[in-house]
Amino acid sequence: MKGKRAIVFEIERFATHDGPGIRTVVFLKGCPLRCMWCHSPESWNPSVERYSDGTVIGREMSSGEVVSEVMEDKDFYDASGGGMTISGGEPMFRWEFVEEVFSKVRANGVRTAIETSGYAPLSAMEAVASVTDLWLYDVKGMDASKHREHTGVDNRTILENLRWLDVHGANIVLRCPMIPGVNDFDANIAALGRLASGLKHVDHIDVEPYIPYGIDKAHKLGLKVYEAPSPPEGYAGEMVRRLSGFTSVSVRRG
């Protein structure tokens, strides 16, 4: 198989939560962010690695191999309005690969979505935007210093790239992870609402409540992630209600 190569740590078929319809989600390894609550710390390291029990994480695949697997479910995408999604890690970390895969599947009539933090050079955003039908765009916090504290990086590039996408007419779904005691305070929620209201092409906002999937995985990798308190019952609904109070954009549970 020809084409650019990347380390893929999971391909999820029949995925119904990462974009519309039935999709195949390809998860790439490598992420410049270190979100303290991360539920997939196995995606941080850009190389193939092993858990302490010996299980191998990731395999190198060419864009052709990925496309070939994605195309197997074309009938399902067509019947459901679905397609393929590339996620991570941070897929923009391997934006040339993403661009190549998306170009190939689009040439075969498959719609594309990317799930990203938006932390990438503008030139990369421009390249990928030309082959992307939907941006599932994470906004993890509006306060710059808190963002740096929680994710290890500044949010300035992220917000600039988001505005650039909006100006250029990209289809956007904002995804807001809500971590109890970390970013679920009023000021952040209000600022998220204002951000969404100020953009023209946000279809809706997905509130994504904290899930503690990353803890065991981090442990098996000798890493640590923050263990937030379990969200109380009704937390997601409450977050949806609160965020809805600050924006006219539709807010859903992701």
């Binding site: 029949f14 119904t16 319809g21 039935i22 009938d75 399902f76 019947a79 459901s80 679905g82």
Partner: peptide, 17 residues
């Protein structure tokens, strides 16, 4: 893993197969 909508899509694909 399924909803009424995904079932509908699965049935359509199955028919085509």
């Amino acid at each position: 893993a399924v909803s009424p909508e995904t079932f509908a899509s699965v049935f359509r694909v199955y028919a085509k197969k």
